[in-house]
């Protein structure tokens, strides 16, 4: 069963000052199956966030189609829960108030939603913090809450845009392991944007590698490492390193090409030319 299907996606941005049109996403197609963990990797500025924002319904697409659970996406909706890099928790709601927000919007009765909210707080290791306010939690705990808030709402897809990027390396490892554990336990469908190759390999079933702007799908790498996964063992498996190296090569290839284009003035004109062609 396909949970998310992206077909021929293209996105042009119009610069607010110069009025110039820039093609951020050239032509991107891929799909995410139900209960699958798919990461999107690519050079900085290639449009990963843009793809996620289009799926979330925050940004309109220029061409193509995005279908979630059989319905074409238009505007944000509870079938696509988003975990933000900035956490985006409601400061005026308690931890429990944040978790049950989606259920409350659905009109789930109080007793039921509180019970479910507590269950999901337990799941992410925040049991007993329900009465606290978000600013009283550490960054790592805040992001766990961000995950719980989405999962409690049971969306068709959970969208995550570099959710652990602002968290220190040690805590990040722990959060990644916890996310894997939660994924292995409940099998939500996850669309994960990152620029950390190891993170992508560790978490994903498949990795979509995008080319530099205007982006296309360069390759989709299948990660057939056994689950449950743990950092300690993952780093020791040769398969893990093999896949990470493959993905790295795909990225370095592209970064090299991009850097070359940036240094060469002709390359810049070239990019502009592509942008105009994309109109």
């Amino acid at each position: 069963m396909t949970a998310l299907e992206i077909t021929g996606l293209q996105k042009n941005y119009v610069d607010a000052y110069s009025g110039e049109e820039v093609t951020a996403i050239g032509d991107v197609s891929f799909s995410v199956n139900e209960g699958e963990f798919v990461s999107v990797l690519g050079p900085s500025g290639c449009g990963k966030t843009t793809v996620l924002n289009i799926v979330a319904g925050f940004v309109n697409l220029t061409e193509g189609e995005v279908v979630v659970d059989g319905r074409a996406v238009s505007g944000p909706g509870p079938d696509r829960g988003v975990v933000f890099q900035s956490h985006a928790l409601f400061p005026w709601k308690t931890v429990l108030g944040n978790v049950v927000f989606g259920l409350r919007m659905k009109g789930v009765p109080r007793a039921e939603r509180d019970a479910k909210g507590k269950e999901f707080l337990e799941l992410v290791g925040l049991g007993g913090f329900g009465h606290k306010y978000p600013h009283e939690l550490s960054g790592g705990m805040q992001q766990r809450l961000g995950v719980a808030r989405v999962l409690a709402n049971e969306p068709a897809v959970m969208l995550m845009d570099e959710p652990f990027a602002s968290i220190d390396a040690q805590t990040r490892r722990k959060l990644q392991e916890d996310l894997t554990r939660i994924f292995e336990k409940r099998h939500p469908t996850v669309f994960f944007v990152t620029h950390d190759v190891d993170e992508a390999v560790f978490l994903s079933d498949r990795i979509v590698v995008l080319s530099k702007r205007p982006s296309r799908v360069r390759e989709i790498v299948t990660v057939d490492l056994p689950r449950p996964r743990e950092w300690r063992t993952a780093l020791e498996t040769p398969e893990f390193r093999e896949i990470a190296n493959r993905v790295n090569e795909l990225l370095v290839d592209d970064e090299g090409a991009a850097a070359g284009a940036d240094e060469d003035p002709g390359g810049a004109t070239d990019a502009d030319g592509t942008a105009v062609a994309g109109v």
Partner: peptide, 11 residues
């Protein structure tokens, strides 16, 4: 981000 979060939680 808060407005977006609320919208994708069904508000």
């Amino acid at each position: 981000e808060l407005l977006r979060a609320a919208r994708s939680l069904g508000a």
